[in-house]
């Protein structure tokens, strides 16, 4: 079970219409790969975030399928086209069924 999972996102505060803005996201999560052995010699069960999505005003920007080879505290950077003022919605899906969300607003001049 992952504890203290904190999502963090960075989006520019404002942009011009049609501009591709850079979006950076990070979520603190151990991303236990299921390959490691604990001090008792048993394999530590896999516990990762298996999917991440980003939408802008309900339109999909990116949908990432994640495997255990993604590092602890999974970080993603990508670009999004913004045509109007709106909100980015970020969603992370955990193996244990938890869903973490975060949002960010952007003003388009």
């Amino acid at each position: 079970m992952a504890e203290n999972v904190v999502p963090r996102v960075r989006v520019p505060r404002d942009a011009s219409a049609g501009e591709a803005v850079s979006v950076r996201t990070l979520i603190s999560h151990p991303m236990e790969s299921g390959q490691r052995r604990g001090s008792d010699g048993n394999t530590i069960p896999r516990s990762i975030i298996n999917r991440f999505t980003c939408e802008f005003n309900g339109e999909l920007v990116i949908d990432v399928t994640i495997e255990p080879a993604v590092s602890t505290n999974p970080y993603f950077q990508f670009d999004a086209t913004v045509n109007e003022t709106g909100t980015f919605a970020f969603t992370w899906y955990d193996d244990d069924g938890s869903v973490y969300t975060e949002s960010a607003d952007i003003t388009v001049a």
Partner: peptide, 20 residues
């Protein structure tokens, strides 16, 4: 490792991450 699926609002086909 991972698969990036780009949607209609993607500004480019560039993505970066950190892997093991």
């Amino acid at each position: 490792v991972c698969t990036f699926n780009f949607g209609p609002a993607a500004g480019s086909r560039l993505a970066s991450t950190r892997i093991r």
